[in-house]
Design a protein around this nucleic acid. Structure first.
Lengths: 199, 199
DNA sequence: GGGTGCATGTAATGGGTTACATGATTCT
DNA sequence: AGAATCATGTAACCCATTACATGCACCC
């Protein structure tokens, strides 16, 4: 995805406004907080931190550890905050996300309905448990209402919740339709006689 | 986005099951039908078609035109259908889409609320008009109910509709919250006196 | 004893967008 | 007159993931 000038380093700046962190911490934080709409691999994080440091947007200090590699703790500089604010002020371009599951469903007529049904069931099984998480996160944030970040973080979590609910509703609805379709395909033009259908 | 083995050529195979098409047609079709969850640039389409042809998954014939370059019309082969079915049977991996707007909103506390408000307004203005499109598409598909593709295409369109509705609900809700926030920020700890606030 | 987590980093590999090149026709 | 549409294609560039490399500590 060769987005003209990506946001990989800016995310790091943004997260470092919360508190100084190591590359590893940043990875963890990304997964835990913005993981539902943004991902960053370590192969991206570490080199970008070096680049940011070279530009004077972050500073680093080294923490010795026994048995483990040194931790490099990065902190954002005033210049880094400026850069972040600049980037935040640029209107984001609408991007079309690629959804492979939907793509395969779109071509579902080319294979047995059971396959598409399986994908929807998988999706529901994988996503339903996340609903609770989003609600928990919002409650957590609500406890720290005084922080200036709180309302924004809550909106992001709420987005996850609302979108997830929508996806689940869609998946259930589509699942019902596909099952109807699969039944019709099994007994074409046969009135529902039940019991020992075909074999 | 270096997804191990992407689906760029398989989309082309999938669309060619509808009818033989040129690279240009494929680009148009993608935008018109699956554009809300999948995009493909010509820089991707043309080379992939050549690759597919070399593998015997599609054939091409040339149509002469006056004043314009020849049209290369591609058609899927039985081998191509096999490959497509194989790919369709592989369970899609859940992917985390990157949403830059949400990312900027998440860091909204670092800039004036007006900026985030602007992004939400933009988003609503850009996306609301699409709702009608999705409904139209579904009606259109409903007219051709007999085609085996119809139920699957309808589901894809319905996904767009449901997700879009969810996004709009979220955006309106968040907008209201941000406006409240902006008002509070302007008159901190001042009871609502109305009229000629500060200036 | 083996897997998982902590912790950092580099290199290979592959994907994908954008820009460029070309040129006639049709719409504004 | 100039922009947009039709139509194909290539090359440069860059972004991002995955794999690899290293090694201790802790838990089962």
């Amino acid at each position: 995805m060769a987005r003209r000038s990506s946001s990989s380093s800016e995310v790091l700046l943004g997260l470092l406004t919360i508190q100084p962190m190591s590359g590893y911490d940043l990875g963890q934080t990304i997964r835990a907080s913005i993981g539902h709409f943004w991902n960053e691999s370590y192969g991206q994080i570490y080199p970008n931190l070096k680049k940011l440091q070279a530009e004077g947007l972050v500073t680093s200090k080294t923490e010795r550890q026994k048995g483990k590699p040194d931790r490099h703790i990065y902190a954002i500089t005033p210049k880094g905050r400026e850069r972040l604010a600049q980037w935040l002020a640029v209107p984001p371009q609408p991007e079309v996300p690629r959804n492979e599951m939907l793509l395969k469903l779109f071509f579902g007529a080319q294979v047995a309905p059971a396959i598409s049904i399986g994908y929807l069931e998988r999706m529901i099984a994988a996503e339903r448990p996340l609903l609770d998480r989003f609600q928990q996160v919002q409650e957590e944030i609500a406890k720290n209402r005084q922080y200036p970040d709180a309302p924004y973080w809550k909106m992001a979590a709420r987005f996850g919740e609302i979108e997830l609910e929508a996806h689940l509703r869609w998946a259930e609805e589509s699942l019902a339709e596909l099952r109807k379709l699969a039944r019709k395909a099994q007994s074409p033009a046969t009135p529902p006689k039940e019991k020992h259908a075909s074999h």
